[in-house]
Design a protein around this nucleic acid. Structure first.
Length: 484
RNA sequence: GGCCCCAUCGUCUAUCGGCUAGGACACGAGCUUUUCAUGCUUGGUAGAGGAGUUCGACUCUCCUUGGGGCUGCCA
């Protein structure tokens, strides 16, 4: 049996739809599983939309998801001459004919039509949908060359598949009707008909094809929102396929090993953003601690004093990291692990340990990478925003000022500035009645927010100086306003 | 309208004739807890309807209903 060759053949429009990229994922997995080739064909015949930028976006998305292709990229526009040659063959053999037609918008011209067989049944065994059959008489002749002389999808697609020696065509469900037509073209040309596998569509909550109106529909949007490519990949794969057991979070190796096109579902699958979010969290938890720490450090460094679009940092942190890991040149530059708020941490080891500790606290509660800058803001800068609601609820209450000043007093006496020691102080104050009344105001006072990592871990990280000054500052400015 | 395809919890799904129908997400409850999470325990919800084949059907067949796709000088 000859080598398996599949292709992903998108039209570059500047955005890559998730349904489309799922087809790419299935093709890629099929190729990798069978040891075949995964080819990329850019169907760039729409000259207006197929700009170099749009093609770059396509490559970028594929790279981001780890969809590497074999052999050179095949550009459809470069094969137009061949398409037309083949049409001439078809004309000569009587499989095609020219006719004057009027198009929908009223233009009249001569187009070339493919002549469908008038009797018999066209059938094929679809790898995912099973046996498919359709009477030839139910399919009408169709155009393959426009009146302006340019080849139409049907002929271009088939000729390219022949030229690229594609053995299996794995594409969206919306192409099934085309497949009956295409099979006839392959036969008319005396070419071997490839195997087909039609993938169901991804639908929205209403069961309609998933579009931009239903939320993020393009790969780029998930990237910007801080999704890990692994999570998107895994989620999309599970939408219509499973390994046959209860495993859901799979490594790329497992996917390649277990993937079988025969087991792909026929039914349309509804896209569930909640489950994707969950899966993203799972993948974030799986990031090695040192990698997550570096990612965090980068987002902190990049943020600096400005408050530009935070999401971008995390994203770029992630992709930087990859190339950085590759050339091995990054990490150990000590300077970049400096902790700006803790001048008392002098040694590189102490600073590194500080970041490690912060990372360990932040990682488990991170759902999206873009949330990282926000989560660590108060640890890397004094310039952090106060959440008005939290301030209102926790600080602007009678007695809070006194409470905070009292804590400043007590914390000052703590010799061993660690989470357990600080917790002991508050515990003593609360006398077993719950630490809430102390904990909440302190959290808002030092971080500006009502949630975040564990409070005492937070204080330990901030250090004595910062903790005390922030508590004092909050007591004087924020907490006092309400008291009169 | 015509043609093609599909049908298990709200969602993604397991089940290749034996099912007290399993898992995950989401949701509810509880434990842990200083918040938010994590973690652990736990609860509820499903085989569209009707015939048939069979000792036995979610699994096979047919019909009905419902849903989707296609029906271009788009891809």
């Amino acid at each position: 049996m000859s080598e398996i060759r599949v292709r992903f053949a998108p039209s570059p429009t500047g955005k890559v739809h998730i349904g489309n990229i799922r087809a790419a994922i299935y093709n890629w997995l099929f190729a990798r599983h069978t040891g075949g080739k995964f080819l990329l064909r850019v169907e760039d015949t729409d000259l207006e939309r197929s700009t170099p930028e749009a093609i770059a976006v396509l490559f970028d998305c594929m790279k981001w998801l780890g969809l590497d292709w074999d052999e050179e990229v095949f550009y459809q526009t470069k094969n137009v001459k061949r398409h037309l040659e083949v049409v001439d063959q078809l004309l000569a053999s009587g499989h095609a004919y020219k006719v004057e037609k009027t198009s929908r918008d009223g233009k009249t011209g001569v187009v070339t039509m493919f002549r469908m067989p008038k009797e018999g049944v066209i059938e094929f065994d679809d790898i995912v949908k099973g046996h498919m059959a359709k009477k030839a008489e139910d399919i009408q002749d169709f155009a393959i060359v426009r009146s302006d002389g340019s080849p139409i999808f049907h002929i271009a697609n088939v000729v390219d598949d022949i030229d690229q020696r594609v053995t299996h065509i794995i594409r969206g469900d919306d192409h099934v009707e085309n497949t009956f037509k295409h099979i006839c073209i392959f036969r008319a040309l005396g070419a071997e008909v490839p195997k087909y596998g039609h993938l169901s569509m991804i639908v929205n909550q209403q069961g309609k094809p998933y579009s931009k109106r239903d939320g993020a529909a393009f790969v780029g949007e998930y990237r910007e929102q801080g999704y890990l490519p692994e999570a998107l990949f895994n989620y999309l794969l599970l939408l219509g396929w499973n390994p046959g057991d209860d495993r859901e979070v799979l490594t790329r190796e497992e996917m390649v090993k277990l993937f079988e096109l025969e087991k792909v579902h026929v039914t349309a699958a509804m896209f569930d953003p909640k489950k994707l979010a969950w899966m993203n969290g799972e993948y974030i938890k799986k990031i090695p601690a040192n990698e997550f720490r570096d990612m965090m450090v980068r987002s902190a460094t990049a943020e600096g004093s400005s408050s530009r679009n935070l999401g971008e940092y995390a994203v770029s942190a992630r992709s930087d990291l990859r190339s950085a890991t590759d050339d091995g040149s990054t990490s150990q530059t000590l300077g970049k692990y400096a902790v700006s708020l803790r001048p008392d941490l002098r040694s590189a080891d102490d600073q590194m340990a500080w970041w490690d500790y912060l990372a360990s606290q932040v990682q488990v509660r991170t759902k999206f990478l873009k949330d990282i800058p926000h989560a660590i803001r108060c640890f890397v800068s004094d310039d952090f925003p106060f959440d008005e609601k939290a301030v209102e609820k926790r600080l602007k209450k009678p007695g809070v000022k006194e409470l905070l000043l009292d804590l400043v007093e007590r914390f000052s006496k703590v010799e061993d500035w660690t989470a357990p020691a600080l917790e002991a102080v508050v515990k003593e104050l609360s006398q077993g009645n719950g630490m809430g009344p102390w904990v909440h105001p302190v959290r808002v006072a030092v971080s500006g927010r009502g949630e975040g990592i564990g409070l005492f871990e937070m204080l330990q990280l901030l250090g004595r100086e910062k903790t005390l000054s922030r508590l004092r500052h909050a007591a004087e400015t924020l907490a006092s306003e309400q008291n009169n």
